[in-house]
Design a protein around this nucleic acid. Sequence first.
DNA 1: TATTGTGTTGCCTATTACGCAAATGCCTTG
DNA 2: CAAGGCATTTGCGTAATAGGCAACACAATA
Lengths: 262, 262
Amino acid sequence: MAEQTGKPSVPSGRRTVTSVGRAIAVIDALAAAPDGLGVNELARRIEVNPSSASRLLATLEQSGLTTRQRSGRYRLGLRFVALADRVLASLDVRELARPHLHSLVEQTGETATLSIPAAGEAVTVDFVPGSSSVVSMARVGRPNPLHATAIGKVMLAFGAGAATLPPSDGLTRFTEKTLIEHDVLRDAVETVRRAGWAEAVGERETDLAALAAPVRGAPDRLVAIVGLQGPLARMTHARRREMLPLLLDVAARLSRELGATG
Amino acid sequence: MAEQTGKPSVPSGRRTVTSVGRAIAVIDALAAAPDGLGVNELARRIEVNPSSASRLLATLEQSGLTTRQRSGRYRLGLRFVALADRVLASLDVRELARPHLHSLVEQTGETATLSIPAAGEAVTVDFVPGSSSVVSMARVGRPNPLHATAIGKVMLAFGAGAATLPPSDGLTRFTEKTLIEHDVLRDAVETVRRAGWAEAVGERETDLAALAAPVRGAPDRLVAIVGLQGPLARMTHARRREMLPLLLDVAARLSRELGATG
DNA sequence: TATTGTGTTGCCTATTACGCAAATGCCTTG
DNA sequence: CAAGGCATTTGCGTAATAGGCAACACAATA
């Protein structure tokens, strides 16, 4: 390399391959830019020389990981969709959980979700839409903000060390009920840990309420999170208390079924 | 680099970054191995030194692109699911097509799909399950074999040069109706090109029949493919002929709506 | 026309990736 | 229990390569 080089940018852990790290930075930058990025713009964002960006993009494009639109801008390619399919297909928890999600929906009428903790966030990998919900908020792959969703709180309460509380100033406010103070959030998480379940009422979207409970695996490890969500109008406090045991039951069953999984 | 090095492995096009190419090879190899791979096994498959594989995997793992299961094997990580969500969210064709898919389902009762050509294959990006179909064969991200699906044939007939006929010996036989002879397939594709639509009857799954039609964009470019599929028992020849105009109408409408996109 | 920004490429050097080999650890087999 | 085999990681040194710089081509704008 030459003079402009900043920091190694990949300090931690075992030895890694720097240019691959840069390529991943490219992917992340593109993921964060729905309308795509030009070579120079991208280069500025990830702080590399435009020539490097050009060559990285060329490499990614060659494998279909990125596409360029007519405008010349680069986007993430559809190959990611195909890759995600493979990932989901190899998920056994998902198969296991499906009938339980269905039964939850049957009994409650609300949308049931299954999320899996990964790299400090909880990714939704499956859901069954509530029978009456016209537009469901759930979507496979949608990120769950740790501090503003029931699922996120379970993640914080039971997840491995990876899931640390984000810094107080990094807590984005979605609604007026969103918990944005570090102390308040920490207490809330502690409560969740004691209770064994979490709820979020209008904290991410004004009209949405949700419940979530952890699914524990073999060595007391958080392997999944089941959730129930619906419009606040229907999911009153009383209603939530009715649904809670159903949810906890499903979580417990799933925990039991997961003796030791891949 | 040192002595063992084989071929450059990334010959074509602009200048590329070799180690990134290798990282992508890792990803592809993992995608093809549902049960994960160990370092050595992976190293053999992509023909690199185990030490390189170890470092590449370390890099990918650090960014959450891969995970290791307790057994020590590596798999693709859930981050791909999140990335795919971003890709799908930035797809405008999808929004445009959704109502049309719904209307197709309403009129026919069968499953309607939307696929997009990318890097020589057609990736399914959305679908609306047929009202009566209990288990739908459609899945977002599922690959469509070019020679054994209606969608694939449309891809071959109207796709850019990228979509070339696979070599005759590479045509896997799914059912006894699968077209596995190069000549036969070529003729079939030619027929599709003339007719402007394709069908596949029991060619991928014995009991499945499908229709597909191209959606053309601005400079006569294939931008998407709409399809209809259902159990062979319901989708008789006569029934398919009834449904065809509906499908072609939707394809035409979509083509019109797409003056110039993305 | 002048100007600014963007994307790509040649060239060259310092950096870094990688092959080798050794060390460690796990699992199986004798 | 010991021994052997296999998997994974790491130190080291070299040579390959990544990437910075700068020049170029092109487009859009002023």
